[in-house]
Design a protein around this nucleic acid. Structure first.
Ligand SMILES: NC(=O)c1ccc[n+]([C@@H]2O[C@H](COP(=O)([O-])OP(=O)(O)OC[C@H]3O[C@@H](n4cnc5c(N)ncnc54)[C@H](O)[C@@H]3O)[C@@H](O)[C@H]2O)c1
Ligand SMILES: NC(=O)c1ccc[n+]([C@@H]2O[C@H](COP(=O)([O-])OP(=O)(O)OC[C@H]3O[C@@H](n4cnc5c(N)ncnc54)[C@H](O)[C@@H]3O)[C@@H](O)[C@H]2O)c1
Lengths: 203, 203
DNA sequence: TCCGCATTGTGAACTATTTCACAATTGGCG
DNA sequence: CGCCAATTGTGAAATAGTTCACAATGCGGA
């Protein structure tokens, strides 16, 4: 498959959100663009990398385009997701319905702290992180969320990678080293605030 | 000032993190690149937009470069930050020390829910969001964090903008409309998971 | 059936970002 | 003091991403 830019994939995800909320049976690239904060040419170009899904003069059939984008993004299958780090961020994430709605199911939670192990979180019992490898051997997951302190993040990631996890959403504010067949996205909120600071400082 | 790309600003923020942890008195572009996951040419180009801070043959003096980048990013001043939405995400954010460490001080928390108003969070009393405008008139803030449900996010943002807030970190998974002099960064975690899904589906 | 309008799909042009490559320095050492 | 090794700063080249512009439809109505 031709190399698709990250920005295109992110926009597809944005379009998908609006398609799922659309009430009319068809939608034009212009309308999707307006909703998603881009241009109609961009919408059409993004889609054109994957095929031609529209009808000239009419636009796109909402149900079909929705299905196509879900398919492109690999959302038709569901994902089992394990969470490591049952702290404040982990707690917010576990209760967040937005993930489940989109097919990402948190199926296990791990922590190191004896006070947390055994407690019940949103129907799941927090397990000792020492069982991470053996649990993943029995019930593999493709995706893991890392919400441990920065100091332990790399070590946790190494264990996840050894256990066959192929994609990691990382909340610790450190870049992580992984082999090339593993994908990592780091959400770094302090960094986002710093870009806001930059824009305040330079106007 | 010449237009600087978002990716350059984000990398500066990453370099800054490593500079703050560096133990040697000087550092080369190659070393910063290795730590930050980029190339030495990229590091030098990023810095060159703002001046020339290094010594040929030697590298960069850590304390000076640290100061320069903090200055470029506008981090030398501190920021007052208001948080709207005292839910699970808001709770995690209020307790997060990473923001304060970098000069972002949450100074007020607002919610709509009578059960939350008046409760004490990390030393701050949650206030009724109806006081938002009057409070901001007395004590202006440049930055706000929005952690309300998606449905109320735009409405909250409109009120923040009218009260003079110039930068917003948004956790609701919706694009927000703001005037051109206001900067918004949206952190969309479900979207990050979807890009991971895409990479799993296409290998 | 045929016309006119709306809108797609897509090369080509343009703009932005990254990488290359090398002259210019700096400091250390013989 | 002069040479060597290291490393910066930066134009120029290469790559990547966005916007333009228009021919190619498809549909609804006369
Ligand atoms: N709280 C926030 O709003 C926020 C914001 C941005 C980033 N973060 C980042 O997210 C991460 C988690 O933050 P938090 O506020 O939830 O911290 P926290 O201290 O509340 O939670 C971290 C949890 O990880 C557990 N842990 C530590 N080492 C572990 C290991 N090796 N294996 C398994 N579990 C382990 C701890 O026992 C704790 O329960 C941190 O890296 C933080 O920098 C948090
Ligand atoms: N919890 C997570 O892990 C998570 C992850 C990703 C995104 N988000 C997003 O972050 C936002 C907050 O999520 P949450 O899980 O904390 O939700 P939550 O329901 O726990 O909290 C939302 C809070 O906002 C308050 N609120 C509602 N309308 C308001 C208004 N007009 N003014 C002031 N306060 C108002 C509610 O009373 C509630 O306390 C949502 O948009 C959600 O999609 C959350």
């Amino acid at each position: 498959m031709r190399k698709i830019s990250d920005s295109t994939v992110r926009r597809l995800s944005v379009y998908l959100r609006f398609l799922e909320q659309a009430k009319s049976p068809t939608i034009s690239s212009g309308e999707l663009a307006r909703l998603g904060g881009t241009t109609s040419a961009q919408v059409r170009k993004d889609l054109s990398f994957f095929g031609s899904f529209g009808k000239r003069g009419l636009g796109y059939a909402v149900p079909e385009l929705t299905r196509r984008i879900r398919d492109i993004l690999g959302l038709e299958r569901g994902y089992r997701v394990v969470l490591v780090g049952a702290g404040r961020m982990g707690g917010a994430l576990v209760q967040y319905h937005g993930f489940r709605q989109r097919g990402f199911h948190i199926t296990a939670i791990y922590d190191q702290d004896a006070r947390k192990i055994g407690s019940r979180w949103n129907g799941l019992v927090v397990r000792d992180v020492k069982h991470l490898e053996s649990d993943l051997k029995k019930d593999p997951s493709d995706i893991a969320i890392v919400a441990t302190p920065a100091e332990s993040a790399q070590q946790v990631v190494d264990r996840l990678v050894r256990s066959g996890v192929k994609a990691i959403l990382n909340f610790a504010p450190v870049p992580l080293n992984v082999p090339p067949d593993v994908e990592v996205k780091t959400v770094n909120m302090a960094l986002e605030l710093e870009t806001l600071s930059y824009s305040l400082a330079n106007r």
